[in-house]
Design a protein around this nucleic acid. Structure first.
Lengths: 112, 112
DNA sequence: GCGATGTGCAACCATTTGGTTCCTTGTTCA
DNA sequence: TGAACAAGGAACCAAATGGTTGCACATCGC
């Protein structure tokens, strides 16, 4: 079951809006499958705060976890980021470099 | 003067976190140089709210404007979005599809 | 069994955020 | 000149956000 109606894109953007959460994703990218405790190390905030961030990342489908004994192992899911890049950011790419030229000129005061 | 110490990346992420602001960017992408009033049309919120959103977009360097008589013309700047795509999202691309396979397996319960 | 370890849950708090309303300032045009 | 139009500015407000503390629960090792 995949179940992404394109609306969860908002959840992904919101999840990526926080630097701590981006750090967590970066850590998981470097080494997948870390426990909650490991992800807390050096992160100048309590375990509960980190757990909340991971919960938000999970709601955005960017992270999943499973329990292993008394630990919780976290795994990154790069697909939503991929989709954002493909379906949204791509619109603002090269075909819009024209817009950049426009920008410079218009700001300098050319009229229509 | 360019002055992006990679820190303003946070401002861009935060700016993109709001659906209304993404809508504004989409509108400017479709037609650059719109006035504040034009950008308000159909947007189920007051002009002042839209102006605030545009202010946030400007702080993130995603939008610039200049006054033209009694109007304010807005122009999109796609460069920061470009940079996000290049410098951040790219890390989570194909080399990490391996991670996706890991994810499925690990969640199903394979051992380390 | 029992203490140490890893996590879960809930209440609480300060600040930020997204939005409003009210009022002022600047421009166009008849 | 003065009314209509476009935008600027500030105070205010409810809700979301990011964080904390305190305590309960489950599991591992001895």
């Amino acid at each position: 079951m995949v179940a992404h109606r394109g609306n969860d894109q908002d959840a992904v953007f919101k999840a990526l809006a926080d630097a701590s959460r981006r750090t967590l994703l970066d850590r998981l990218r470097q080494r997948n499958g870390q426990t909650l405790g490991e992800l807390c190390d050096g992160l100048q905030m309590t375990r509960q705060a980190v757990a909340k961030h991971l919960g938000i990342l999970r709601q955005a489908n960017l992270v999943a976890w499973r329990r292993e004994g008394r630990e919780r192992l976290h795994f990154i899911n790069p697909v939503p980021i991929h989709e954002i890049a493909e379906r949204w950011l791509r619109r603002f790419e090269l075909p819009q470099l024209e817009a950049l030229a426009q920008l410079k000129q218009k700001l300098e005061g050319e009229e229509p």
